[in-house]
């Protein structure tokens, strides 16, 4: 790391921090924020007290006495909400992964490079056509990513109505864009040693990409798929707020009925699911990175 004198008193770190603080102050003024609005509204204190009181005793059964006839037991409802959450997330990732792999390959410089060993854009000798195709593809990928999954859901709901496919597509479209972007970056940043070796023995470009570049990026890509699956679980839980039968749907209903102990059960279930996935993925990562 080289430090250069930049004329900012205190050095560049201080300069960066000062600039960030300045932007923060502008944002604060623009929003008209006041610390006083952090104080809960009159009814809010009571809600907060009741809500946090439920944290230590999450519900294992319906909190209210009058349960409509035919309602499944609470734990069963919780499990089915959890299962829907997993299913929507899994379906979205299963759809987004092939699309993201394809787009990611096509958007990476190592795919288009005439000399595939050079990952960097600058050094790669490419035809103008390849450059244009890659640039267009990157714009397309950025556009896929730029619209939030819930906004996709809102559009699909307006066009097609409520259906599992609506929810899955809403998650899958931005996720394929994210997969594509991250995969292409990982492919271009992976070590090029095996690609060089393959090129040295005269392998074809496709062979070099598939057996040289790709395997070097694969551990990172696999780890990223896990992380994205975790994000998909969260996003799928939120889809419930729009009427899909995932955790968010029941969480919102319970909260609006002031059944805060039930809300905590849903929150803990989501937390447990994410923690489980985290433990599982880090156990896997230890094995394939080592």
């Amino acid at each position: 790391m080289r430090e250069r004198w930049t004329g900012v008193p205190g050095g560049r770190r201080t300069g960066v921090l000062a600039a960030l603080a300045l932007v923060g102050i502008v944002a604060w003024v623009q929003l008209g924020l006041a610390p006083s609005s952090l104080v809960p509204r009159p009814g809010g204190v009571q809600i907060a007290r009741n809500f946090f009181a439920g944290a230590l005793s999450p519900a294992l059964d319906y909190q209210a006495g009058d349960v409509p006839a035919g309602a499944p037991p609470f734990l069963l409802r919780l499990l089915s909400a959890l299962w829907s959450t997993i299913l929507y997330a899994a379906a979205a990732v299963a759809l987004a992964l092939p699309a993201g792999l394809l787009l990611g390959f096509l958007a990476s410089s190592s795919w288009w490079a005439v000399d595939p060993v050079c990952g960097s854009r600058r050094r790669a000798r490419r035809s103008a056509l390849a450059g244009t195709a890659q640039a267009l593809l990157r714009v397309f990928i950025a556009a896929l990513r730029s619209v939030h999954e819930l906004l996709w859901a809102v559009v699909f709901l307006a066009a097609m109505g409520l259906s599992p496919v609506t929810g899955v597509l809403a998650l899958a479209i931005p996720y394929s864009g994210t997969f594509a972007k991250v995969f292409s970056e990982m492919l271009d940043e992976a070590p090029t040693d095996s690609a060089r070796a393959l090129r040295g023995v005269g392998a074809a470009p496709a062979t070099i990409f598939l057996w040289g570049n790709l395997p070097r990026a694969l551990p990172d890509m696999a780890a990223y798929v896990f992380y994205r699956f975790e994000c998909a679980i969260r996003a799928s839980a939120v889809l419930g707020f729009f009427g899909f039968p995932t955790i968010g749907y029941f969480l919102r209903a319970s909260f609006e009925d002031t059944q805060y102990r039930e809300v905590w059960s849903y929150l803990y279930a989501l937390l447990a699911l994410v923690l489980l996935l985290e433990v599982w993925s880090s156990a896997l990562r230890r094995r394939f990175v080592a």
Binding site: S37, L38, P40, R41, G44, V45, I47, A48, F51, L150, R234, A235, A237, V238, F241, G248, L251, R252, F255, V263, L267, L270, L271, V274, L275, E278
Partner: peptide
């Protein structure tokens, strides 16, 4: 990990009821 496990949307939903 626990802080990031709850989605922003759910957190905002809960905070809205408390903060207005």
């Amino acid at each position: 990990v626990a802080m990031r496990a709850i989605p922003e949307y759910v957190l905002a939903f809960l905070l809205l009821a408390i903060l207005g």
